[in-house]
Design a protein around this nucleic acid. Structure first.
Lengths: 190, 190
DNA sequence: TTGAAAAGTTACAGTTCTGTCACTTAGATA
DNA sequence: TATCTAAGTGACAGAACTGTAACTTTTCAA
């Protein structure tokens, strides 16, 4: 009925991710993407009205995938095991942190609402709600300090991934030390 | 001998800061700045060749100011007091975190070297070296865990400022809890 | 008072990106 | 094989930003 497509959504999103991480939201252009995909710029406009819609769709795709992997946590028993899984996951997927930042950037600069804007807004909330149940488990098990705000606990854990490792401390040592600080702090116990 | 200037560097940098924090490096333009300063765009080009040079000069100004405030730490006696001062300072100057990010952005995207590029590169290093001596003090006093990498300790402390307080936990409770987690961790002691 | 010098403006050319439209191409089906 | 339809292209106009050059304005000092 119609001509064969030169690319699919998976290939497209793969390049979008590379470009976003390399150039950021503002540096990303349809020309850049079209060159990478080896199609004309106009071809991309057949599928997405503008950059905002394209990146939004991509973000939703990435965040849903991450959320899906996050929910693997439930397969682990008890807080301690889930904690280890969580830290390992966010260090395996460090890009997600940058992508969420970019997502918030879209929501801030976009004036008019559009198709998937609402969906993009809801995803971080869903993620937050899921992690809050994890925090609650920790508190109920008596493993997490009760008086600390849930949002700070969650934020702290997610933020660690953004600490720049300028001096190239070996990955394993780094992650081990992060877990240590989050759990037991950096002060000596007396 | 010459005509009176319509603006000075202090006023200029004040507006640059506002615009940078609101629009980010990419969103910042000479037109935007000229409007704010109520001068013509071309007038700005009398003082700065381009955006890169302008923002670089501004960054150096801001980072030197911050470094100066940071060095007030030395007036406090012992690690514990210096730690409290440091946390309070970085929460008083949360913007500096975003500005340093922007500075790194410049260094990444700029191809050719220019006047103050080197100076901009050196400032974070100077800051790092200063904080490292603080970490050393903590380790020597037996207050900080010896086996944790210095760069992680420093990164951890600086990064806390970027944790988003989405649910508007009161400032004092927030900062108190941050200090608690950094020092003693979020796990219950058994 | 007049003219040198710095401050400031206007206007232009060049670049890059955006969004659209008329067009061509390729594959399925009738 | 004719033709319908979706895929893809090239080319255009409009917008925004950049950097510069020629010009005007203001001030002070000789």
């Amino acid at each position: 009925m119609a001509r064969e497509r030169k690319f699919n959504t998976v290939e497209l999103f793969h390049e979008v991710k590379q470009l976003l991480l390399q150039y950021g939201y503002d540096g990303f252009t349809f020309s850049l993407l079209a060159d990478r995909m080896e199609v004309s710029r106009a071809a991309l406009y057949k599928y997405y009205d503008n950059k905002e819609e394209l990146i939004t769709d991509f973000m939703i795709f990435e965040m849903e995938e991450f959320l899906h992997e996050l929910k693997e946590m439930e397969k682990y028993d008890g807080f301690a095991q889930q904690f280890d899984f969580l830290i390992d996951l966010i260090f395996k997927k460090t890009e997600i942190h940058h992508l969420i930042k970019a997502a918030q950037h879209i929501l801030i600069i976009s004036e008019h609402s559009f198709e998937n804007k609402e969906k993009l807004q809801k995803l971080p909330l869903e993620m937050y709600k899921f992690l809050q149940s994890f925090v609650l488990l920790g508190k109920n098990e008596g493993k997490l300090k009760n008086h600390l705000p849930d949002s700070l606990i969650i934020g702290f854990i997610l933020q660690t991934v953004a600490i720049p490792n300028h001096f190239a401390v070996p990955r394993d040592e780094w992650i081990y030390s992060v877990k240590e600080i989050i759990g037991k702090g950096m002060f000596m116990n007396r």
